[in-house]
């Protein structure tokens, strides 16, 4: 307790305009022999904002909600990799990354952490490594493989970064079984769709009637992926912060070619 009081006093002394720099966080971690994550939690608990969140414009209390959230990103390709980047920057404290694949050349056009240097490496490993550089306080769990029931039950919110319709149906069933909101998006060429399936809605079944076949490797333009991933990240953020979103009862069709963005009841 005495140590905690001393830590708090240290943090308060180093805080300038309500914000604590990374240098001071590192000093505190060294001096008090704890992790940057511990420092961040103590800071947020006492209304001190780490400098990395200064421009998020969220109060320390709301930033603390993000800190305590655990989000599973199922599929770390075009959508999932970018959602992971955005959630790391927002300050979502625990990210569970699941993907069985390695980066290949055809991923270079749109997948955030796919570079000529990361080709051939497991996506979850590369993404986790890069996320830690962006935000060192993150708890990151990685699974090099397909998602399982545990992938769903272990997190509060599930992000759909899949590219197979069968897998989406399976993920949707698991999310409804465990009452986890599923933040869905999908892309093709200039077009995309995004919406949130709650345990009592049937978004995935509506968007993917059972008779449709899975299309292999659709054409995907990078701006389409970036836009839809950003919308997924925004929905995750709102759900964690308890802010209402129209996308919990509707889905949005996005047509970047004709600049048409239309909400439909789900």
């Amino acid at each position: 307790m005495a140590e905690e009081r001393e830590l708090l006093q240290f943090l308060q002394e180093r805080t300038k305009d309500g914000s604590l720099s990374l240098v001071d966080q590192r000093d505190a971690a060294r001096q008090f022999n704890c992790s940057l994550r511990d420092i961040e939690e103590t800071a947020l608990n006492h209304s001190i904002l780490p400098g990395r969140y200064q421009r998020n414009g969220l109060s320390p209390a709301r930033q603390l909600l993000l800190f305590h959230a655990k989000v599973a990103i199922i599929g770390c390709g075009g959508l999932g990799g970018r959602v992971a980047d955005l959630l790391a920057r927002l300050g979502v404290g625990c990210l569970c990354l699941t993907d069985p694949d390695i980066f290949s050349e055809s991923n270079l056009n749109r997948q955030n952490f796919c570079t000529t240097e990361t080709l051939g490496q497991y996506k979850v490993e590369v993404v986790a490594q890069e996320l830690r550089k962006i935000n060192p306080i993150l708890n990151i769990e990685t699974t090099k493989g397909r998602f399982t029931e545990t992938s769903v039950s272990a997190a509060y919110l599930i992000v759909d970064g899949l590219d197979s319709i069968e897998d989406r149906h399976h993920l949707s069933r698991l999310c409804r079984k465990h009452s986890r909101p599923l933040i869905h998006a999908a892309v093709n060429n200039w077009y995309g769709q995004v919406g949130v399936e709650q345990f009592d809605t049937q978004l995935i079944t509506q968007l993917f009637p059972i008779q449709v076949r899975s299309f292999q490797a659709p054409q995907v333009l990078p701006p389409t992926v970036a836009l839809l991933a950003a919308m997924q990240a925004a929905e995750v953020c709102k759900l964690i912060l308890g802010q209402n979103s129209p996308l919990t009862s509707t889905w949005l069709h996005c047509d970047l070619l004709n600049c048409e963005y239309t909400l439909f009841e789900s």
């Binding site: 390709g77 899949l162 999908a186 892309v187 093709n188 995309g192 968007l207 993917f208 069709h253």
Partner: peptide
């Protein structure tokens, strides 16, 4: 009428 959009 909407096509299936399934990429990720």
């Amino acid at each position: 009428i909407f096509p299936v959009i399934g990429g990720g």
